[in-house]
Each structure stands twice: as C-alpha cells, then as structure tokens.
Amino acid sequence: MPKDWIEIRAIGKSVSKDAAVAVLVKAGSPGVVEYAKAVAPAEGAIISHSVWSGAPDESFETAGVTASLTAYLPSNSPYDVNALKNDLKKIGWKFTASVYVEVDWSIKWRLHIRPVKVSFGQASFIVRPPWIHVKAGKGCRVIVIDPGMAFGTGSHATTKTCLKALLWLFSVDGAALSPRGASLLDVGTGSGILAIAAKKLGVKEVVANDIDAVALKVARKNARVNKSAVFVSSATLEKTKGAFKVVVANIISTELLRLAPSLKARLAPKGFLVLSGLLDIESSEVAKAFSLIGLKQVKSYSSKEWRTLVFTDNGARSGE
C-alpha cells in the first residue's frame, strides 16, 4: 500500500544549510533536496504529486533567504512537528508542511501506455495493454501486451518496424513466405511481442529466447494471454538448435555484430533475417558485417533515428 508522507519545505540562510540538513535527516527524512535558488512555497499550489494542506503562515518571510530544502517525513514518524519547528528555529530556519501521497508507480505508469497500430498494405497489428480494449477491423490482428519490466510495448520505433517487416514477410499480397510451413526464432524476445505477432500471422513454429529471467516470465505470460503457442526458452542463441525460415533480433548493434555468425547459423536456406535495435548511424556498419558473411539486404525500414534491416541469402527472393 502507498505510504503517506509529510513534505517539509524549509528556507533559511545558506551558512546554516548543513545544520538544517542534519535536523531534517534526524527527523526521519530519507534524504534532502536542495534547490539552487530559494523559493517560498506557493499558496494552495499543487506541486508534482504534493497537495498543500493549507496556505503557509502569513508571517513566513522570505527576505534574505538564500537556501531552500525539501524533505519528507513518514506520516507516522515519532518525531513531533513542533520539535522540528523548534530545532529549525534555533538555526534561523522556518518551514511549511504539506501532505504528500506517495504515488503507486506500478499503476501510474500505465497511463502512458496506449494502443499502437502498425500497418503494411491491407494488413495491420494493434498492440494494446490488457486494461484498454479496442475494436479491430478487417485484416487487423490484436496483440495484448503487458510489458512488466521487459522491453516491448509496441510503441518503440524498432518494435514497430519489426512488426512491419513481419507483415511484409507473411501477410501482404505476394508475401515473401507462406506462414503455414514457416518457423521463426525471436532472439532477445523481451515481452514476447514479435514472437506472438508471428503466431497471430499463422506461423507454425515460433521459438523465443532471452537470457533475462524477468523477460522470460513476462513473455510466457503474454503468450498465454494471447493464446499463442510460443516456445519460450532461456537457451542462448549459440545453444539454440534448429534452422528457421525467419530469425528476428531486436537488440543492440554491438550484440548483433557479435552474434552475426550464430544468427546466420540459425537461418534456414532462403530464409530471412530481421535485425533491429539499430540507430541510423549504426546501420551501415551492421549491413556491411552481414553482407561479408554471405547475406543480402532486401529491405530497410526507418522510423525517427532508428532502422530495421531485412536480409536473406542470395538464393532467396527479395521484394519491394
């Protein structure tokens, strides 16, 4: 349960600032914030998540003030506010108090996650969190993602362009691959969003791996919620067995370069490799590295400063 706090905003001479900090910490504040320029608290103002319990004392003078400190005391602190007032008064400091309700960020962060739509041709995905419902039109597949602490809500440019690449590969007219007999490996799956997207497109076999325990837990949960038969594995890429028609890796560029031989080794003949997590300035280096191991770039998607590249071997089909 969230805990209630008392926000203390104190002002006084900078020469006695250290003494004021000591008093506030002694009173039970886990830390003290110093403002570069002293300001008096605004009457009746709502600042951040703080709610003033009342206007400051009219005798609260700010003339000559050169330091301002903010501290937080638990509402159930045994330290008496009057004692704090007396201790600060001894060094020439004054303060106002307000009620501060600690935000439950496990709920608050949800306000910033909205449904995301990614389209290519007549096909599209809508990625939504569990707490928001949407109507999907013809040709639209809905993916429900609760990211938890794992990467992949659908809002990041690299995730969007990877989803667009999957739509190109499997769903548009004259698609590069038929999903019915296809297989896909999602390297560094995070929330599992790309692996789930593949299943939504009808890909028969989907394997998702990650070396992060939290990501594995989140990906398995999301696969269940979406009723998608994804095999989620903790095996590293080097220890993953089999060959896949599509390999997707949305990870940082240094890891893509390091894993290049292993990524190619997991690619089936005439398969496609989707690489993302790349900044525009990194894409040419990555493209060159994978061309040197015998892969041909056939597609490129960009969004903001990010880029996603699609490769195949020289015997596979490319497209626009």
Rank of each mutant, 00 (worst) to 15 (best):
T312G: 10
G44K: 11
K138L: 07
E34G: 02
V65M: 13
K117Y: 00
D210R: 08
D173K: 14
L24T: 03
N222V: 06
A19D: 12
K239G: 04
I251F: 14
A287I: 11
A55I: 06
T189K: 08
K245V: 00
L169G: 05
F290N: 07
V101Y: 10
A10D: 03
T254A: 13
I251T: 07
L24I: 03
P41C: 05
D146P: 00
T153I: 02
G28Y: 06
F125Q: 09
V214L: 01
L84C: 04
A45I: 08
G137T: 04
V172E: 13
E7F: 00
A123S: 05
S119F: 01
I107Y: 05
K117Q: 07
R224F: 06
S48Q: 14
N250Y: 10
V103T: 15
K239F: 12
A243G: 04
L166G: 04
D212G: 09
A63G: 15
S155T: 15
D57S: 13
N226V: 05
S155A: 14
G190W: 08
V116F: 01
A19N: 01
N86S: 14
G294F: 09
A197M: 02
V247S: 12
T189Q: 14
L24G: 04
K221Y: 14
K37C: 03
K138M: 08
F170R: 00
L167S: 09
V103I: 13
S302Y: 06
W306K: 08
K241A: 11
F272T: 12
D173S: 10
L292P: 00
K217G: 07
L88T: 03
L184H: 02
